[in-house]
Simulated assay, not measured.
Amino acid sequence: MTNYKSVDKSRITISELMLPSHSNFSGKIHGGYILSLMDQIAFACASKHSKMYCVTASVDTVDFLNPIEVGELVTMKASVNFAGRTSMVVGIRVEAENIQSGVMKHCNSSYFTMVAKTKEGISVEVPGLILNDNTEVKRYLKALKRIETKKSGQAEFNHEDFSHQHYLEQLEGYKVKIELPENHN
């Protein structure tokens, strides 16, 4: 019998001051550092929901919208947006605040698929979700749509009859030159 937990039960927020040691060569906070923090909060959120050790299965839609400056306070908010049989989609919002002016900016939103595991590495069932407001319902539906789109694309491109020849005309108008040998397959 599946148990259920509300989204609020596993919601997590973390904040961290960005230091010069976190910056890249252009003086902005390194994207890899932000991704590492995002992976940590995704792990914590998924583990809190499932009460199990969790691993990252995939990361979808990582768009860096605004740079983060040294000295800004970065806040990450994570919640379980979708629960499957053994996996969860954790939505993460990254905001940076200039602590002197109070100006906030949205820097990133991303989706981490996490899988609950035993100590032996066996995937285990996770609790279902109780959705308490319209935002949670929308997030669940969007996660479901992203999963369906991903599966559909994988099925199409992994099908035994797949041929790139059927797609070549779609490349017209793109910045690509195709110079295949005469006997290409």
Rank of each mutant, 00 (worst) to 15 (best):
K5C: 02
V7F: 07
I12M: 10
T13R: 13
E16T: 10
M18I: 02
L19P: 04
N24M: 03
N24W: 04
K28L: 04
I29V: 15
I29H: 06
H30M: 12
L35W: 00
L35M: 14
L37M: 14
L37R: 13
M38R: 01
Q40H: 12
I41P: 06
A42S: 13
F43Y: 15
C45L: 01
C45R: 03
S47F: 10
S47N: 06
K48G: 06
H49N: 03
S50F: 08
K51N: 15
K51F: 08
K51E: 13
V55N: 05
V59S: 10
D60K: 10
F64S: 00
F64Q: 04
V70P: 02
L73V: 11
S79L: 11
N81G: 11
G84F: 06
S87G: 00
M88K: 05
A96D: 03
E97M: 08
E97D: 04
E97C: 07
N98V: 06
S101D: 06
S101Q: 03
G102H: 01
V103D: 08
V103N: 00
H106L: 13
S110D: 01
S110T: 11
Y111I: 03
F112C: 07
F112R: 05
V115W: 01
T118H: 08
T118R: 05
T118W: 04
S123C: 13
L129Y: 04
L129N: 05
L131K: 00
D133G: 01
K138Y: 05
R139E: 05
Y140L: 05
A143Y: 00
L144G: 01
T149C: 10
K151S: 06
S152L: 11
Q154Y: 14
Q154S: 08
A155D: 14
H159L: 02
E160W: 04
Q165S: 11
Q170N: 13
Q170G: 14
E172F: 07
E172R: 10
K175Y: 10
E179T: 07
P181D: 06
N183W: 08
